[in-house]
Amino acid sequence: MENVENLEKKLRPKGEVSIIGCGRLGIRVAMDLMEVHRGGPEKIYLFDGAKIERDDIVHRRLGGKVGDYKVKFLEEFYSEKVVGIPEYITLDNLHLIKGDVVIICIAGGDTISIRYKIIEYCKERGIKTIGTDGVFGIEEKVKVSDAKYTRGPARYLNLKEEGHTVVGTGKYIKDGEPITPYILDEIGRKMVIECLKVLNSIYR
């Protein structure tokens, strides 16, 4: 039987993850991934051009200052593992995306086009993608599914093939329910679980 020290060495961080969008959901995903011990990603790349504003309560609660770049604030937590890139991902800089898994934490009707392009870019390079499927809800169950089959907001991505995992309540803005912190916590938790499953399957 192997000794504990050898087993611990096998459980070191492996692989890389990009998180696109570090707002209320992205910060939860980033923090959870940073806290994974004896495994998880070796590097986390964060992409977001936004700065912390007064209503970014979760950032401020963790010590972020209004006016700081969200990604640079997160980088300070764990600079050996986290690289904060204060840019929005656009059609002109898709080449910045890297890693084994890309977690897309941007949502809304006006983001459908760029989300689709990110997914296609990653698919061509064998990078697994995870995104959202509705973040609204008061006491909704958070579900994990494939975007090709969902009836939630991710269906508007119009993906023809399987492979893009989505996590969410399936609720739309028109349903008139708020975005609650506990729903975001659960979405973030399940996104991280899906991410870790992918990393474990790659780096067995």
Rank of each mutant, 00 (worst) to 15 (best):
K148I: 09
V82Q: 02
Y172M: 11
R38Q: 11
R38K: 11
I202G: 03
G134R: 03
G126E: 03
E75A: 09
E80M: 06
I127Y: 00
L46A: 10
E53P: 00
S113K: 13
G64L: 10
G63W: 04
L33Y: 04
L94E: 01
M31V: 14
I112W: 05
V17I: 15
I27S: 07
I52W: 04
I173Y: 14
I138R: 13
V36I: 14
G126V: 08
G109Y: 04
M31N: 15
T180F: 01
G108A: 08
G108Y: 05
L11S: 14
L7Y: 12
L184N: 11
V166P: 05
L62M: 14
K143L: 13
F73H: 09
Y121T: 07
G23S: 14
V144N: 02
R125H: 08
H37L: 14
Y116L: 11
G170A: 01
H95E: 15
C22M: 04
I19S: 04
F47L: 03
I173W: 12
F136L: 10
D146R: 08
L157M: 05
L74Y: 07
K51P: 00
G134N: 00
E76K: 15
R28K: 15
T165E: 10
M31Q: 13
K171G: 01
E120P: 01
E76S: 12
K148C: 00
K148T: 06
E161L: 13
I103V: 15
E161T: 12
G131W: 06
D146A: 06
V83C: 10
K197T: 09
D68V: 03
K160I: 14
C22V: 13
I106F: 05
I19R: 06
I89W: 06
I183F: 08
V198S: 07
R189Q: 12
L159R: 09
N3D: 15
G84P: 01
G39T: 09
V167C: 04
S201E: 15
D48N: 07
I183C: 02
G176L: 08
V82A: 09
I118Q: 03
N158Y: 09
E161P: 06
E161V: 12
